[in-house]
Nucleic acid binder design. Structure first.
Length: 888
DNA sequence: TAGGGTTTT
């Protein structure tokens, strides 16, 4: 840390302005056709650019901005070079229009009902509204490539709805098949899927307002614990914004997705696990609802080997598709239209997945962002980030719209940089003799967050508010980054993980500092081992980070890596489906009637090994039988929105008569980040880390982490009924209607005192209620409890997690270690404190966050919830068991 | 001796 302080002159001084990239439209975010927000900002722009420190870069940046326009329009044309249907931005015409003449270029404003007509017609997407509707009406699949701010997510569903397209096609379909059918009830609704809850909720709200309807009538959202659709009756909501996981759930009971006439898969470029699975599910439904009687060529991406079983399964899947088609015909289902909405141009992937799809590109409404790469490779990017931020602060005007967003990989780095920045800003203050009273004023002016200023890592120094932002930070401390700057504070510097890439939006950011790294989860199916590794981001992520500087005005993105390093980055992020344990996905697919997930049409097929491993787990849990068919038990498991391991644990609890306790444990495991661990990295004012640890110790169980989670939940509930009895009763009523309890059960003080994440606990509470309902429906007695008879509880944990057992190694033996490992050249180390996993035989240690860490004597045998590789191999979520329980 | 980010009838 000290060496960082001592090297304050390095950093941005070495960053030079890059010449305009001529063939890379990610580099410059264009001013778009007809929208000019940029001209007036030229002065600010050059002064900001001068942080490079040379007259050369100033001149270049002016030139660059000019060239940026032309280079971008070139890039737009470049799309058609991808071999996709040609799309001209200014007309929106595409070759897929075929012979039909296309006259109207936009929907008449009269077509747009409700409020915000001006706002709606000013959006870039409006210029293409008629084209989009036309494309959607004439193609099964339309790919809309549009950057942030184009209005695609709010407008396209509304255009389709307002055009009456789905009504017409439904009627037509009914007429074609059997005219005696009553009023068409299928295929009338539009579903827009989102990877995140918040997005689904806010989009639905916004579109309701725009269409001047009460939320839940024509437009509604459907996310876990919160469903505002169909308030007026059965299937009355016509535009549903749902999380993709929610639509996936729906597909389990209705693989034909009968209700929907169009499904829009938004944020497709993010390639989240659920969106990826949904691609295949939607494609299957589409194939089944297609009107042409082609029956045998629908399933693609099949890699058949000379294996009788696999052929058998393929035939089974084909039979199922034929049955789905028969159902679709019998019900008169109209064809399913699909609209894929993506911000990046990974068109080859989408195109080969949906052959014959057509595409349209719409400009975003982003201000241009100048990208500056560093001219050297930094070994210590925290140091480089520190100096870059200090240089920005010293050399650019502050005030509104001058905030800085720094992307780092994790909490430690963030806290580290926060304390370094604080010290440097204090030094600056002493140098510049800034008004010493400012700091005091500022703290007084932030109402309701005084405690966070003192207790967290966020702080105000020299008129600069340093905010930290990462997922496990309690919400009240996250809020600091979103609130307007307090009086007397001229600049905000936000230090964030990739939570700020997509999950949250921050206003007023002008400078983005990007370290070029992120932490990502990887999964090895061979060992069942997860690892969390720091790795390079992709170009798509770099563009996403850059875009955060151009939301409200022109911005600057400073990359702490060279242009050469940038060029070597992968184009897109590895899809999640290639990086995670697929047991739950495979179970879901099986329960949708897909016999062999290897024949399932994945956008990017996961490795056969990964699927085989999932099969092994499902077989071991009894979810599938020898012929790989779903068992009754497997069907029950698929009803529970849990990883199959936990679904099994929960179902086992009936036998042990401790359903109540296991419900709690499983719900707590579903909610991440229950414990808040403050201030390890930064300077720890008032011994926060120690206070946090002491608070957590009060809940610790001698037997391990799962009983500890039980203790936390029970303590929280006790607190809840003690302080808020009235509200709690209300909450229960609310939950029974399927609504979230988060508004009423926060228990902020209790959580703060105990360093517990209140939001996570509230979520666990919601999950628990949902799981209770589901268990009741499965005929379980949800009130069955072992009360103080904890041995039954541990036996149940053991029966549920029997695949995740590790035994202590004898203390006397020695372990071989790899050369150049952290053990300083030693070839063997004492085996003390090490465990060996029962399956896979991996040598692991108990994770330091576990209550069993450092316990003396260490338990002989444990079950664990996670096997992770970080700095070394760890088991987390450990609980002591007796080995003999494993046999019965 | 240490936890990127989502999400599920």
């Amino acid at each position: 840390m000290m060496n960082r302080l001592g090297r304050s002159s390095a950093g941005v001084g070495h960053i030079r302005s890059e010449s305009t990239p001529s063939n890379d439209d990610e580099e410059m975010n264009s001013p778009n056709g007809g929208l000019t927000h940029n001209a007036a900002l030229a002065d600010d722009y050059t002064s900001a650019a001068s942080i490079g420190g040379t007259a050369r870069s100033e001149k270049k940046s002016k030139k660059k901005r000019k060239r940026g326009k032309s280079s971008n329009s070139k890039a737009d044309d470049g799309i058609s070079n991808e071999g996709i249907s040609r799309s001209h931005i200014h007309t929106g015409m595409t070759a897929d229009f075929g012979s039909k003449k296309h006259k109207k270029s936009v929907l008449s404003p009269l077509h747009l009902k409700g409020m915000f007509i001006n706002e709606r017609t000013n959006l870039p997407v409006y210029q293409h509204s008629a084209d989009i509707v036309h494309l959607i009406s004439n193609n099964d699949v339309v790919l809309v490539v549009a950057e942030t701010g184009s209005g695609k997510s709010t407008q396209i569903p509304a255009y389709v709805h307002e055009s009456g397209l789905l009504k017409i096609s439904a009627k037509a379909a009914a007429a074609n098949v059997s005219s005696h059918l009553p009023k068409q009830k299928y295929g009338r609704t539009i579903c827009v899927t989102q990877p995140r809850r918040v997005a689904a909720i806010t989009l639905a709200k916004r579109v309701s307002e725009e269409m001047k309807c009460i939320p839940g009538t024509i437009v509604g959202h459907r996310v876990r614990f919160d469903d505002t659709t169909d308030v007026k009756g059965h299937n009355t909501t016509k535009i549903i914004y749902a999380t993709d996981g929610m639509l996936l759930r729906e597909a389990i009971s209705d693989p034909l997705l009968k209700r929907y006439g169009m499904i829009a898969l938004d944020e497709a470029h993010e390639r989240s696990l659920q969106t990826d699975v949904l691609f295949g599910v939607v494609k299957r439904a589409m194939a089944a609802r297609k009107r042409e009687p082609e029956r045998h060529k629908e399933i693609e991406n099949v890699q058949l080997k000379d294996d009788a079983d696999e052929t058998l399964y393929f035939e089974k899947d084909e039979e199922i598709l034929i049955r789905m088609k028969e159902t679709a015909v019998a019900l008169g289902l109209p064809p399913l239209r699909v609209c894929v909405m993506s911000a990046t141009l990974d068109v080859d992937t989408f195109r080969s997945f949906f052959p014959g799809s057509s595409m349209i590109k719409i400009p975003g409404r982003q201000y241009p962002v100048q990208v500056v790469h560093s001219d050297q490779i930094y070994e210590d990017y925290i140091d480089a980030a520190l100096n870059t931020v200090i240089n920005i602060h010293k050399n650019t005007p502050d005030g509104d719209g001058s905030d800085v967003l720094v992307f780092l990989t994790g909490q430690d780095e963030i806290e580290d940089l926060a304390s370094l920045l604080k010290r440097h800003l204090e030094d600056l203050k002493n140098d510049n003799s800034v008004d010493q009273n400012v700091k005091g004023d500022v703290v007084q002016n932030i109402k309701g967050i005084g405690t966070s200023i003192n207790s967290g890592c966020s702080m105000i120094t020299n008129g600069v508010l340093i905010c930290v932002l990462y997922a496990s930070l309690p919400p009240e401390q996250q809020m600091l980054a979103f609130r307007p700057k307090p009086k007397g504070c001229s600049r905000k510097v936000i230090l964030a993980t990739n939570i700020a890439e997509t999950s949250v939006t921050l206003d007023g950011i002008r400078y983005v500092v990007d370290c070029g790294k992120h932490k990502s989860r990887e999964y090895k199916s061979s060992t069942g081992m997860e690892s969390l590794v720091v790795s390079d981001i992709s170009k798509a992520q770099a563009a996403q980070r850059m875009g955060r500087a151009g939301r409200v005005s022109e911005g600057i993105c400073l990359r702490l890596y060279t242009k050469e390093s940038y060029d070597l980055l992968a184009e897109t992020t590895v899809p999640e489906i290639l990086r995670v344990n697929l047991a739950q996905v495979v179970l879901q697919l099986k329960s949708m009637g897909i016999h062999d997930p290897r024949s399932f049409s994945f956008l990017t097929p996961p490795s056969a090994d990964s699927i085989r491993k999932s099969f092994e787990v499902l077989a071991a849990l009894g979810a599938i039988d020898e012929s790989m068919d779903l068992t009754d038990y497997g069907k029950e498991m698929s009803q529970l929105p849990l990883d199959p391991i936990y679904a099994n644990l929960l179902l086992q609890s009936s036998k042990f008569e401790c359903v109540s306790e296991i419900l709690t444990v499983v719900a707590m495991l579903s909610a991440e980040n229950i414990f808040y661990h403050p201030g390890r990295g930064g300077d720890d004012q008032g011994g926060l880390a120690a206070r946090g640890a002491a608070a957590h110790r009060r809940f610790a169980s001698y037997e391990g982490d799962l009983p500890t989670l039980l203790n936390v939940y029970n303590a929280w509930r006790k607190e809840a009924s003690y302080t808020r009895t009235g509200n709690l009763r209300k909450t229960k009523q609310k939950i029974s209607k399927g609504k979230s309890s988060s508004a009423l059960l926060s228990h902020g003080d209790w959580c703060t005192q105990n360093f517990i994440n209140g939001r996570a606990l509230t979520r666990a509470h919601d999950v628990r209620s949902q799981l209770s309902d589901l268990c009741s429906r499965l005929g379980m007695d949800i009130h069955s409890s072992c009360s103080s008879e904890m041995t039954t509880f541990y036996r149940c944990i053991c029966a549920g997690l029997f695949l995740q057992v590790a035994s202590r190694l004898p203390n006397s033996s020695q372990l071989q270690v790899k050369k150049n490992s952290r053990y300083n050249g030693a070839e063997t180390i004492p085996s003390r404190g090490h465990y060996k996993t029962k399956i896979g035989g991996t040598i692991v240690s108990v994770h330091p966050s576990s209550t069993l860490f450092g316990r003396n004597p260490a338990p002989k045998c444990v079950v664990y919830t996670d096997l992770v590789h970080t700095t070394r191999m760890y088991i987390r979520g450990t609980t002591q068991i007796r080995e003999e329980w494993l046999n019965g």
